[in-house]
Amino acid sequence: MAQAIQSVNIPRLEKIARELRVDVIRMLEAAGSGHPGGSFSEMEILVALYFHRLRHDPKNPAWEGRDRLILSKGHGCPGLYACLARAGYFPHEELASLRKIGSRLQGHPDRLRLPGIEVSTGSLGQGLSMAIGMALAAKLDGASWRTYCILGDGEIQEGQIWEAAMAAPKFNLDNLTVILDHNNGQIDGPVEEIMPLAPLPEKWKAFNWHVQCIDGHDFKEIFAALETADAVQGKPHAILAKTVKGKGVSFMEHQIEWHGKAPNREQAEKAVAELAGKPD
């Protein structure tokens, strides 16, 4: 099932990522709240998965043979919603309902409201355990679908993550791939100040994972790592993706204040103009 990286139309994916960033800006501006920083740091990872890598069917979200993706860092859901709408899970217009009363687009993802959401998340540290349960189920059934779990770097300060990190190798869950969105920002400040994670690759290696370190905004590196993860057997896979919080909008990049703040009209127009001005 591995596809040669050469076959990937990377300019197409870069264009999608830019357009989805515009969607996120518009959604947050309309909602008046939400999380741009983490939505932008994870964007290339989501686009790589939804528009090339995942076996999924937006017309049949419950298809049993689909790959599962859990956005454990649930606050990054504006990025996920933009992907799901673009993929065809629900109408693009619905993005404007984010965080509004009665909306299917909750402030954090809700699997029972919105098609395409595998797990309701938002309480950090829980997604990896649920991903392990899914990967165990696939093994039990002899099924070939894979489970992907996107973690935030602040999120892995939760103890349950390390309970899960201990468990996955015990069960040889090579059908499980974790992608860490390592943007080094959390609400109260830089991750390395709030609670240092280094040495990160060594930690996951010590827990017996197959570890790869990549640039999380470089599609070639993302696809290469995903392919390697498919090929290496016997261990769960951790792809540690170095990312930039707020990536793609100059005044948001690396700025902690944009973790959970919506742009006002003026800021939104500036961001959209910047995103639109980049060459296709």
């Binding site: 797990v119 355990s129 349960g133 165990l136 189920a137 309970e163 468990a167």
Partner: peptide, 26 residues
């Protein structure tokens, strides 16, 4: 034995893993 999973002294992860299994029909 194939349908029994020992998760060790880590109840949160056990409960979360059970949720994942349940979401896949177990």
């Amino acid at each position: 034995p194939e349908r029994h999973f020992e998760l060790g002294i880590a109840e949160s992860n056990m409960i979360g893993a059970a949720a994942g299994l349940a979401l896949c029909g177990k």
